[in-house]
Structures are given as C-alpha cells and as structure tokens.
Design a protein around this nucleic acid. Sequence first.
DNA 1: TATGAATGAGATTTCATTCAT
DNA 2: AATGAATGAAATCTCATTCAT
Lengths: 185, 185, 185, 185
Amino acid sequence: MVVFDRRGYHAARVDDIVKVAKTSHGTFYLYFANKEDLFWALLSDVSEEMTALSGSLGPIVPGRKGYEELRSWLDKFVDLYIRYAPVIRAWTEAEADASETGAFGAGVLARFARRLSDRIAEADSGPGLDPDVAAVAMVAMIERLSYYVLTRSVEIDRDQLLDTLTAILHVGVFAGTRARRSAAV
Amino acid sequence: MVVFDRRGYHAARVDDIVKVAKTSHGTFYLYFANKEDLFWALLSDVSEEMTALSGSLGPIVPGRKGYEELRSWLDKFVDLYIRYAPVIRAWTEAEADASETGAFGAGVLARFARRLSDRIAEADSGPGLDPDVAAVAMVAMIERLSYYVLTRSVEIDRDQLLDTLTAILHVGVFAGTRARRSAAV
Amino acid sequence: MVVFDRRGYHAARVDDIVKVAKTSHGTFYLYFANKEDLFWALLSDVSEEMTALSGSLGPIVPGRKGYEELRSWLDKFVDLYIRYAPVIRAWTEAEADASETGAFGAGVLARFARRLSDRIAEADSGPGLDPDVAAVAMVAMIERLSYYVLTRSVEIDRDQLLDTLTAILHVGVFAGTRARRSAAV
Amino acid sequence: MVVFDRRGYHAARVDDIVKVAKTSHGTFYLYFANKEDLFWALLSDVSEEMTALSGSLGPIVPGRKGYEELRSWLDKFVDLYIRYAPVIRAWTEAEADASETGAFGAGVLARFARRLSDRIAEADSGPGLDPDVAAVAMVAMIERLSYYVLTRSVEIDRDQLLDTLTAILHVGVFAGTRARRSAAV
DNA sequence: TATGAATGAGATTTCATTCAT
DNA sequence: AATGAATGAAATCTCATTCAT
C-alpha cells in the first residue's frame, strides 16, 4: 500500500490506478477519501521533497567545482521531477490563479525559485538582472526542459540535459554583469 | 463562432465551451465532428502562427540593436502564447510519444527551436554548447516563463518578463564561448 | 417530465426511478442535482399541498353536518397521503432531531396539527385535554392509520378508515369535557 | 455484544453498528450471518416483549382505577417503544405485503391490536365503532405519538403524552356509544 | 442553420461481506 | 474468538454526443 501511492495519475481513472496498484476500488477508498485526496497526498510528498532539495543547494561558486556541484544538484532535481512527473504535470495543467491545485504548485515552485535567487544574489556582485526574476526564469527552464525530455518531445539524453542546464545556470550567475552590459551597449 | 474557437480548453467540458461561445451543443457539432476536432482546428491555427513567427526571427546581432530586435520578437511570441495558452498547454498534457496531439505539439515546438538554433549557430562562433540543445532550453524557458506570468504564478510584469528573457537569450548567444570556458576551468 | 417527479422513492435506486419514469440517468441528473435533490423537490410539493389542505379545514361543528364535513376533509388528507406516501414515509424514517429531512417533515406535521388544534379549541368549550396535545395525537393517529392501510399492515378498507378517524375525531372534540371528567372521577 | 444488539438501525451501515458496539466487522459476522440476521434477532426480542406486554393488559374499567391501570400499561408500552424504536421503525419501512420483515411487523402490531380490541369489546356495551378497527386506530396513535415524542418532533413531555393517550383511550372505550350517536344525530 | 432536451456508456463512490492473521 | 484490511458488486453521478423540432 505504500508503494502504490507513488503512482497515481491525476488524469487517470480510478480503475487504472487500482489496476496498476493491483488493488481493488474498495481498497483505494479505504486509504483515500476520493480521487482528489490521493492527488493531494502525492502533492504534499512532492512539496516536502522539493523543499528539502532546495534547502540542499549550497553556495554557487565559480570554476569546475561549482559547476560540478550545481550539476549534481540539478541531477537530483531531474530525478525528483521524473519520479513525480504525473503530479507535477497535473498542477501544471491547472490555472495557478483559479485552482487550489495550481496555487499549491505555484507555491512550491516559488519557494524553489527563492532559494535559487538567494544563491544567485550571493554569488553575483555585478549590477545584472534582478536575481528573483532570473531565478524564476531558470526554474522555468529547468522544469520545462525536464518535461520535454521526460515526454520525449525532444531528443535529448539525460547528460545533454544536465550539461545544458548547468552551463546556462552557471554562466548566468557569473556572467550576469557582463550579460547586462552586452545587452545595454 | 468566431470568438469561440479562440477559447477552447482541452480539459473543458463541451458544456463550458458552448456556454462561453454562446452557442448550443447542436451548433458545436455542426462545425466540429467532436471535441477532439475542435482541438485540432485550434492546433493548426497555432501551428501556422508559430511557424510564421519563427520565420520572422532575423539574425541575432550583438549590441543594443540586436537586443531590441530580439526583445520585440519575444514580445510577439508572448502575445501568441497568451492568445493560445489553453491550446499550447493542452498539447502538453499529452505524452509526446504516445498521442497524436502530443506529437503534433512536439513538432511545432521542435520547428520553433530549430529556427532559434539556426540563429544561435550563425551568431555564435565559439565552441559553446550544442546550439540545438541550447535553443530547446531557451524555448522551454520562454514558454514556461510566459506561462508563469500568464497564470500569475509569479509576480512579474510583462516588461520584466521580456527584459529577462531577452537578456538571457542575448547573452546566451554571445557569451556561449566564455560561458563554457568559465564552466570548464 | 412533469409527471415523472411525482414518483420517486427515497429508498429506491436511481435506476428504478428512471425506469418507472421511462427516462435515462442523464435526464434525471438534468433535472435534479442528485438523488437528495429530487427528494427535496417532492418534499416541498407535499409541504405546499399539506399547508393548503390544513387551511381548508373549516370550523368543526356538532351533528351530522359537522361529521360529514370532517369526513370529507379527512378523505382529502388520505388522498394526499397516498399520493405522496413514499415521500412522507421517507421523512418518517429519518430521526426528526438529527436530519434535515426529518426536521422538515416534523415541521409540516406540526403546522398541520396546529390548525387542527385551533379548530378543536374553537369548538371545545369544556376544560378537556390540552387542544395542542390532543391535535398532535389526532394527527399521529390519522397519519399512522393511513400508513397501516396503505401498506396493508391491517385489513381495513377506505370507508372503515374514514369512519373510524372521523368518529374518533368528532367525538374527541365534543366529548372532551366529559372525557376528562370520566377519567378524573 | 450485549449493549450492542439493542442499538441496530436497519438503515445503518455495518460500519456504524460495529463502531457503536465497539466491536469489529469480523466479530459481527461471527454472531450474525448478515445484517438482516441481526435485524431478525432484534425483531424477535421486540415481538416477545410486545406479546408479553399485550398479555398484561387487564380489563378496562371505568373511573379513576381503570384510568390509572390503563395509564401504567401505556407507560410500559412507551418504555418498550423507546427501547426498540429503531427496530419498530425499521419494520415500518418495509411494505407489509411485500417483505417478510414488513409482514412480521404487521403481525406483531395486529396481535397487539387484537388484545386491545378484546378489552374494548368487553367494556363497551354500546353499538359504537367496530372494536377491531378502533383498536388499530388506537395502536396507531400510541405508536406514532410515542415516535413524535421520542424524536422530539413535538414538544410534549412524557406525562402529557401518557395523560393524552390514556384519556383518549379511556373515553374512547366508554364514550363509544355516545360518540357514535353524537356523530349520527 | 440552429437549438437544447435527452441519452447512455463509462466514470466515481459505497458498503455488506470475507478471510488471513 | 476476535480482528480489521481488503474486496467487488452494485450504487451514484458525469459528460460527449445525438436528434427531433
């Protein structure tokens, strides 16, 4: 019964969920008040793991060491994303300003972005982009690219995905100043 | 009937659609074979506009002029995104490798990314990231950040959105080489 | 569709209701939000008719004329009771102090009893029973005896039922004084 | 298990029953073949007690002594009713001519009414109402008024209830002749 | 062309009953 | 004897689609 609630699809029929979990309808409703309830249970799991993960992001430093640290952190994010993909995709399908689900997901991502923003602000002394906005943009990219890869919308393998995300993030942090300047000149 | 087909939600019930469109169920089925059919109609509209839009992306050049050109192009994308958000988000709900809809959407984004990739490749002479992958990452970011802003998941206004996207893209193209180097050293 | 909502059984399955009404499940839910909703619709119908009926109870007078008037009024009550039997029985099955349904039914009967009480009080000048309590007792008897007859718990025909109810009521009203006395001596 | 079988509701879920009884589902099915079986067990208890109670109704005599005897007998009935209310009400939910349960309940009430009828016939020498029918009417009133009081549908206390029932019954028995006459004149 | 009441297949949910411990 | 998690048949409810007007 424990493994089972790792698997639900929001879009899926209870019938499917139950089939995958090799249980019965009755058992499903023994553990969850309704389909929505399962979804919230999963949501709170993701939220917890995401919060833990964002807490584990240390200072972003230049050079190979910083690059590798960032890459391994992103690796963990992608892992988590893949594991919870159905749930994350579900909150994504909902309008953030109109549904509880959407609002919840938006909150999780916002906390995630804030942590990244703090790290960017620490590292980047130059008068670059607003770190808050840049962090959100990065989270958007990380989330969406993970999604493209997961759904095979694009033909990118896991290594390419991580290299690209890491490079853009790492350079984004340390090239912020120059970036802004290049744009302004 | 004209306003109406700008509004469909994949998730929405036919009941909702006809209410918004101020028509009847009967009329709906007069114009569309079924709900899916409406979706395809909308999809082909987006596809067309997206293709036109990607065609309009000229060479990316350094300096203020290049920045402004890129910004105004992104502005058009955001417009298009906002207009077709429900449809774009809907093709997303489907697995790209398992549904026609998903595959179609993936195709639209892929063509879009390829154009951007070409422009990046033209501009960027250095041994940076794979332009194809970088372009996809950029499209992911553009698409998803537009979504965040549209759904008010985050508090970013339109100008901030465009400034951020443009800056990251513009510097991404011209700092690619240095970026890669900073990561590798 | 109008006749149809005259027929529902609270205890019945939607399947049965729909079969009796020769409609489909879909149609049922087009007219009623859920099974409960149908029940409330019927309930408000009974309430209305019962209120109208109690309003039509004129002064209770002695002699054959009074007897006949009372009998014909009781006849109408029994009619109404039979027509709405499933609904009335349903509110009966619920605890009056624990369910909305039960409370509603209790209210309808209470209004009914009050009217009867007023008529008893008008007619009965002697120091008999409390007219309010006596009226409630009479309503209890009328309601329950109708029920016994309806469900064939007892072998009483319609005429016997009406004769008995009318006689007990009529004598109850005019023998109140003597009754109390016979009990007290 | 002792308290428990005093409490079953026919409408109640087995879940509720075992919760109230502080047992488990397993134990329930150890003692009863199924939910219906519990009901029959309770039913036979009521039946027994009701039969004993009707047997204890002595001759109905005029005057205070007869009144008090009748009142104390009714007191015992109300006691019994309150103790078994859920069961008594439950046999009521079934159509007497269509279900075993309903038929059984009808039988219990019929025996009860016959005893009362016999006592009425003994006492009442006049050419009043059919004692059988009158007895049934009285049982109906007793049963239903007990119910109203039990569920607090009406604001009547136990003493008022007993006074009213006793008075109506006692006068009914001894005013039968006059009653019929007053109606006929 | 346009309508919207009606439909029914298929989804979700309930609850009496079983059975391994 | 006692337990309560698990079951699944049967109930309730939803919604894309049809069709008489």
